[in-house]
Amino acid sequence: MLAYLARRIVFGAAVLLGTSLITFSIAFLIPADPAVAMAGAKANPQTLAMIRHQLGLDQPVYIQYAHYLDRALHGDLGRSYIRRESVTHLIVSRFPATAILALSAMALALMLGIAMGLVAAAWRGRALDNVLLVGSLAMVSMPIFWLGTMLLIAVAAVSRTFPLGGYSGFKSLILPTVTLALGSAGYYSRVLHANLSQALDQDYIRAARGKGLSNARVLMKHAMANAMLPLVTLAGLDLASMLSGVVLTETVFNWPGIGRLAFEAVFNLDIPLIMGTVLFSAFLIVIANLLVDILYVWLDPRIRLGEMG
């Protein structure tokens, strides 16, 4: 079990190293000169040379990467070109808003997805199952930013007081949460439905039915026990796509989180901020996946007892 967790931690670190290479390469793809971006187009050559020296841009690439990595490991992601603030500080200050939004959306997505998947599996092969299947596909197919905009239009039409943007307490959380959660909920419900359908065809389910257990009990206790595990992994992996959704949701609802920060960074071509938000998102996902791995150890006795360790 410890070996299993150690392997997962090493893997997480490797992922972050790989990500740092990718974010570092972003800075090299850009045709514009960061020194010019910082000092303005009218700066004289001496100033530009000085800024390049300050940024370490006059050194070989691998030295620059080593410095970048070293600073990142110490929590220093550089300074925003536009805002002239520490990128780490900007990200940390925006993180709570994103965390609240992502967690509440994840909770809603899981509740809705599990409910839809269970109901569809209980009515397997019947009309309700089909309706839920098409419904979940529709949820997955909906562009997040459009859904958000439609909700805004609908709510603005019926209420003048409901908060339409920004971050001001519980009420303002409702629309962004629904917007962000719907696609993931559709996805989870489909996966749970597939897992349950597979489980329901197994011998142990037939045995449980043979014992005279009710359908509901077989579904909830026996089939769910095996169908839930993959869903846990999925929710961990889905965090990556959820963070993509966060960018769109926060942009639509003017939500002061990291997604909105990333959007502004891209809009202003603020390279350190772009690199920082990508690296930080990868960091969040690695941490989330580690938590999922730990949860897995707890949920799956095969790993706990070392069979798969």
């Binding site: 990500t19 974010t23 992996l237 990556a240 959704g245 990333a262 959007f263 772009i274 690199m275 938000t277």
Partner: peptide, 13 residues
């Protein structure tokens, strides 16, 4: 590694 990264954010960058 690529699967871990948020696709849209990377694409934006």
């Amino acid at each position: 590694v690529m699967l871990t990264l948020p696709g849209l954010l990377l694409a934006m960058a």
